[in-house]
Simulated scan of single mutants.
Amino acid sequence: MGEGVGQSVRGRTPYLPIVDRPRIKLPGNARVAVWTIVNVEDWSAERAMPRAVLPPPMGQPLLPDVPNWSWHEYGMRVGFWRFLDVLQARNLKASFAVNGSAITTYARACEAAKEADWDFIGHGFLQGPMHKVEDQDKAIRDTIAAIKKLTGKPPRGWESPGLTETDETLDLLADAGIEYVCDWVMDDLPVDLDSRGRRVTSIPYTVEINDVVMSAVQQQPSDEIFRRGRDQFDRLYLEGADIPRVMAISIHPYLTGAPHRIGYLEKLYDHILSHDDVVMWTGSEILDWYRAATDENA
């Protein structure tokens, strides 16, 4: 294998169906571990927007793209604070997937996440796909350094912008000390990935209970996060009586933080919290549980 070239995707982890693995248990025989990922991104007004709510007028793209940039900016000025209120009212902590540059651009919000004791996750340095980053290693390490400067400790987890990776991304993340990733949305339980013989764990993330997909891509009604999230949870709760499951809820301030959507996020949490045998964790807590449980069965 040439220097700087990583393993193939399929070579990172063997195919092993969930029904064939050693059985592990959540504390108190809980059925489902639920985690929330709040995504905070830094969109450069000088570049094409990562996504758009308005098409360019008369098909003529223009930079700066004021309306679409402002659509995202609303989330950081207003929507983020709704998330903070909703989570704190229920004594919940989020995992905080944040661009390294956002630590400075949105310092007030990042300070609030730190004060709330959220679990910081690296999310690229500036919002954009990893395969378009000129120096991935520098972007990863700059992101880790920015988070460590604010929180006093490096992040344990990583979510690539748009969940994008090249063949070498996972190895560069492992080299930089990252322990878990969110990009591999392929299971209801954590899965270990091989990085040059080292252990990196994939924590179950989601493109299904994810407001980018529901609201920005599929353009579903405002209550979709509740309807789909409730149905997702109910099925995992049923199955979790036999094999425990992990459920992710991925939200962005400019989407679910909008006034017409935030109430449905509240309804989803209240539905989940009305059930016994559920743990509300962060990504790091799921990682620690999984590694302790699998080490016991090794």
Rank of each mutant, 00 (worst) to 15 (best):
K132Y: 08
L172G: 03
R245Y: 04
D142Y: 08
T169Y: 09
W289L: 13
E266P: 00
R196Y: 04
H252E: 12
V181D: 02
L238Y: 02
Y237N: 03
S101D: 09
F233L: 05
P64C: 14
A293F: 09
R227V: 14
F96C: 06
L189P: 00
I147L: 09
G59R: 05
L189A: 10
E179G: 01
G283A: 04
N29M: 04
R82T: 05
V38C: 11
V40N: 07
T151S: 09
Q232T: 06
L238G: 05
D42L: 07
R51L: 10
A146P: 13
D137R: 12
L92E: 10
A248T: 11
D223W: 09
T164Q: 08
G28V: 05
S202Q: 14
P56H: 11
K132D: 06
A107R: 13
P259W: 12
E115L: 12
I18Y: 12
T151Y: 12
F120A: 03
S195P: 08
T105G: 02
L189D: 08
V66T: 08
L92S: 06
A216R: 15
Q218M: 11
K93D: 06
L189T: 06
A52K: 05
P259D: 10
A52L: 03
S250L: 09
V200C: 05
M186G: 02
G2L: 10
D42G: 02
A113L: 09
R51T: 11
L193D: 00
C110F: 00
V246M: 08
Q218W: 12
W35M: 07
E41M: 14
D117T: 12
L173Q: 02
T164K: 10
V207G: 02
K153M: 06
S8R: 11
V9W: 03
V133L: 04
I121Q: 09
T282E: 04
D234I: 00
E46P: 00
V9D: 01
L54W: 12
R199P: 01
R196W: 01
L26D: 09
L163Q: 11
K148P: 03
V133T: 15
D117S: 10
P14D: 00
R156M: 15
N29W: 01
A102F: 07
A116Q: 07
